[in-house]
Write a protein that binds this DNA or RNA. Structure first.
Length: 863
RNA sequence: GCGGGUAUGGCGGAAUUGGUAGACGCGCCUGACUCAAAAUCAGGUUCCUCUGGAGUGGGGGUUCGAGUCCCUCUACCCGCACCA
């Protein structure tokens, strides 16, 4: 080993151990092992070609778990792959003329290289790449099975259409009603889209959240709200023409407040409701109104400020409980087609939106619920003349047979009545909608369908799978290149052999990530997506780790897929992820020049609180998530080159708890680097110490060190189990400090020092695997630390024989006493009262009361 | 608007079931070594009117005792967003 003066050579050491692990296949799953399994998975990355700090944090967290569980005797599976379909590849093609496939595969090669130096305990033999036919062919088959099982269907649905890019945009790609790339006004278009019936499992997906006890509460709540279950009723209103004659049609509305039906003063339908379209055919003003609604639609900010607008159709709806009464039917911009039946009844007295609408269009406001304990007439008078709806619980009034019932009872009674009249039915409505998976893109998995004029949408026969993407495509024009490919889409119908065309849409890229965790269990089987026995052996994932940005969509889609795959016979499982952890973002200060331009951290010179750039003052902004657009990124490559993987890993694990945001600082990474060097020096000093046998009796100065070592083993184990990596680092550093300060030239000194350093190496191994291997080896251990069992502790050595107890007077600390752990209450009281400051506080008077909690505290209540 | 979360030194953050607030680290200060610097080592570092007092976003409460429990207010962050 090197002399103490020499700094730790991370370059040599890290490369050496990475090579050693690779040559020994240290991280390959042990086939046929009798050990219990443990599946650790981090969300697989999109191969952007650039490793960023978010990756470093994500994969380091997973690696700590994987290495720790391995040491704890588990047969660990820790695989890696590439979420390789997606829009950036097409953007690269547009901007630089590179083929998306070539670009993606190059990026994968680059990123695989970048992952190497991090020293991750990955089983690369299981690597999967989602853009390759050997992966996506299975999801084509799966989709056809879903179709057979009624879990996939084709439907016309409204989408955000960018007329310049010729493509559908996701809601988040529409900014202020304009396409994020083109800046063109986004249109609402009706397109034929393939959908997956996630709503089929709405109830089960909701109920099962309860059982996901190793998921963050936050994520469970978000999924709960996203599914959005509400109980209510569907109510049918017979429609009446303007001339008063029955139209012979029914309008179905959904409501959660059937108890307020007697307060109805209008009905409203969505601009996209079929009835609206019918009526607009010979009503140009209505047609214009509907067109207007389509424009302002989607952007979130626009919705917030949008004014409620309605168009009176002239039709009227007959009240289900009172055939003599009719209310006007409006087309309204605030009614959503995608929720319920796309139509509502308005009760302004007890719904804020309805109130706003009623006041604008001078519709009557009728109070039908009054709070308990208030005078109904006075309350009604106030409500009916005001602008604030009453939405809380109360008692029904002005409501015929419902009068006197509280809201819940009135709801039940109203539903019962509706059902007996045949004009409604109690139902459960979910906010969750089916998942539209069609994308007008090239770089995605082709949807295996052929459209035939006589046979309709025909599944591609199994023998013709996979439908592979053609490589010879051009990106010189906007739109989907598959659409204009000269030959690819022209095929003959599998059913009738007439000329037909392929579906040119591809799957949403969330499709690939919805089942990859299962593919990892048997990544090389060719005839099926995965081997069921292997999948059932490894799933569910024991610990899944990723960003909170996927708290809803990806995790919900995966839960759906697992159920759908089970129903189609692929496996027998509901929940794919038993444990979930969402990590925080990696942040950095932001810098702007006088002209407002963002500046890179490297370009800025800091002077304490202030900073300059080329001598000009710089505005130091708050810390934000590292992003290219704000230029506040730090290149992991540079950090790895300068300080090595262990220092980078240690830093991202120190200080901040992993679920919180991490502030990247130069000082922080330097601190981690300093610690590793210090540890290295301490270990170098131990190298010359003979491996003394542990004496039976230790010097009194050394005995507490032994106990601290045992305590640290216990504490770090618990910290790692509970994702308190920052706390584990603190415990290990504490022990390191003790070892650096301890006396070694006493009985047992050398033995304990060695024991301490070996323990530190073992405990820190999951966090900084390279330096710990090196220290372990230097201390004369033959075996590879990565393949060595976690240290155990002696419970008898966790506590000292004496304990220091706080002594308070009136709840304020006045001193401490150190006593034997076995000391009784009387002894504690005597010792406490003997303290000088305590006597001073008491001023000679006897204490009024003394509270004694042995092992914890003595509190003296003075008179 | 609805739902959820957070608030502790100059900074990141620790604190079992209510029981010595500020572990560990960063930064800073002093000293040693050095021609000097870096690195390293030793010591210090919540604040103040300092034999004492105050202190965990503000105010109130429960308790012998509150960062921790209850009420209330404020600020910030996240999710959803006309879901009837």
């Amino acid at each position: 080993m090197a002399s103490p003066e020499e700094r730790y050579n991370f370059r040599e050491t890290e490369a050496k151990w990475q090579k050693t692990w690779a040559s020994r296949d240290s991280f390959k799953v042990e086939e046929g092992s009798s050990k219990p399994k443990y599946y650790v998975l981090e969300m697989f990355p999109y191969p952007s070609g650039r490793l960023h700090m978010g990756h470093v944090r994500n994969y380091t967290l997973g690696d700590v778990v994987a290495r720790y569980k391995k040491a704890r005797g588990f047969n660990v599976m820790h695989p890696m792959g590439w979420d390789a379909f997606g829009l950036p590849a097409e953007n690269a093609a547009l901007e630089r003329g590179v083929h998306p496939g070539k670009w993606t595969r190059q990026n994968i090669a680059i990123m695989r290289e970048q992952f190497g130096p991090l020293g991750l305990s990955l089983d690369w033999s299981r690597e999967i790449t989602s853009c390759e036919p050997d992966y996506y062919k299975h999801e084509q088959k799966m989709f056809l099975d879903f179709l057979k099982a009624g879990l996939a269907y084709r439907k016309e649905s409204w989408v955000n259409w960018d007329p310049v890019e010729h493509t559908v945009l996701a809601n988040e790609q529409v900014i202020d009603g304009k396409g994020w790339r083109s800046g063109a006004d986004v249109e609402q278009r009706k397109l034929n889209q393939w959908n997956l019936k996630i709503t089929h499992y709405a109830e089960d997906l909701l109920k099962s959240i309860e059982g996901l006890d190793r998921w963050p509460d936050k994520v469970r709540l978000m999924q709960h709200n996203w599914i959005g279950r509400s109980e209510g009723a569907r109510v049918t209103w017979p429609l009446v023409n303007a001339d008063g004659k029955d139209r012979g049609e029914m309008l179905e509305v959904f409501t959660t407040r059937p108890d307020t039906l007697f307060g109805a003063s209008f009905c409203a339908i969505s601009a996209q409701h079929p009835l609206a379209a019918t009526l607009a055919e010979n009503n140009p003003a209505l047609a214009d109104f509907i067109a207007d609604c389509g424009k302002s639609g989607t952007s979130t900010a626009a919705i917030e400020t949008a004014e409620k607008k309605g168009f009176d159709t002239g039709l009227r709806a007959r009240h289900p409980f009172d055939p003599a009464k009719t209310v006007p039917v409006y087309v309204a911009n605030f009614v959503l087609m995608a929720y319920g039946s796309g139509a509502i009844f308005g009760c302004p007295g007890h719904d804020e939106r309805d109130m706003e609408f009623a006041r604008k269009y001078h519709l009557p406001v009728r109070c039908v619920v009054a709070p308990v304990g208030e005078d109904p007439e006075a309350f009604a008078a106030k409500l009916e003349s005001g602008t604030i709806a009453f939405t809380d619980d109360g008692v029904a009034i002005n409501s015929d047979f419902l009068n006197g019932l509280k809201v819940d009872a009135a709801k039940r009674a109203a539903v019962e009545k509706l059902e007996s009249l045949g004009l409604g039915k109690g139902t459960v409505q979910y906010r969750l909608r089916d998942w539209g998976v069609s994308r007008q893109r090239y770089w995605g998995c082709p949807i295996p369908i052929i459209h035939c004029e006589s046979c309709g949408a025909v599944p591609v026969p199994d023998k013709d799978l996979p439908v592979t993407l053609p490589e010879d495509v051009t990106f010189d024009k906007p739109g989907n290149p598959l659409e204009r490919h000269p030959t690819w889409k022209h095929v003959s119908c599998p059913a009738c052999a007439k000329p037909a065309v392929r579906e040119t849409d591809t799957f949403d890229t969330f499709f690939e990530s919805s089942w990859y965790f299962a593919r990892f269990c048997s990544p090389h089987v060719a005839d099926r997506p995965f081997n069921e026995v292997e999948a059932m052996k490894w799933l569910p994932v024991d610990q899944y780790i990723g960003g909170v940005e996927h708290a809803v969509l990806h995790l919900l889609y995966s839960r759906f897929f697992t159920r759908a795959m089970s129903d189609c016979g692929y496996l027998n499982l509901k929940e794919p992820f038993a444990g979930m952890f969402t990590q925080g973002m990696v942040c950095h200060e932001t810098y702007r020049a006088a002209d407002g331009a963002w500046l890179e951290p490297g370009a800025v010179t800091k002077h304490g609180e202030t900073a300059t750039y080329n001598g000009q003052p710089v505005t130091v902004g708050r810390s934000e998530k590292m992003s290219k657009s704000k230029k506040n990124t730090v290149d992991p490559q540079h950090i790895l080159d300068t300080f090595g993987a262990d220092a980078a890993r240690l830093f991202v694990l120190s200080d901040s708890p992993p679920d919180r945001d991490l502030e990247w600082t130069d000082a922080g990474i330097e601190g981690a680097w300093r610690y590793l060097n210090r540890l290295w020096r301490l270990a170098s000093a131990a190298e010359d110490i003979p491996g003394d046998a542990m004496p039976a009796v230790l010097d009194p100065s050394v005995e507490p060190v032994r106990r601290q070592i045992h305590r640290t083993i216990a504490a770090v184990g618990e910290d790692l189990e509970k994702f308190r990596f920052n706390s584990a680092v603190a415990r290990i550093r504490e022990l390191t400090n003790t070892l650096a300060d301890m006396k070694r030239d006493v009985i047992g000194g050398n033995a304990i020092y060695r024991f301490g350093l070996e323990t530190v190496a073992q405990l820190i191994n999951p966090l900084t695997p390279h330096i710990s291997e090196e220290i372990w080896q230097a201390l004369g251990n033959g075996a590879i630390l990565t393949e060595t069992a976690w240290p155990s502790f002696d419970p008898a050595l966790l506590e000292d024989d004496t304990v220091t107890i706080a002594v308070q007077v009136n709840g304020k600390l006045r001193g401490t006493i150190t006593v034997a752990k076995t000391a009784d209450k009387a002894a504690l009281e005597t010792a406490a009262l003997a303290l000088q400051p305590v006597q001073k506080q008491l001023e000679g008077k006897a204490p009024k009361k003394v509270i004694i909690v042995p092992g914890k505290i003595v509190n003296i209540v003075a008179g």
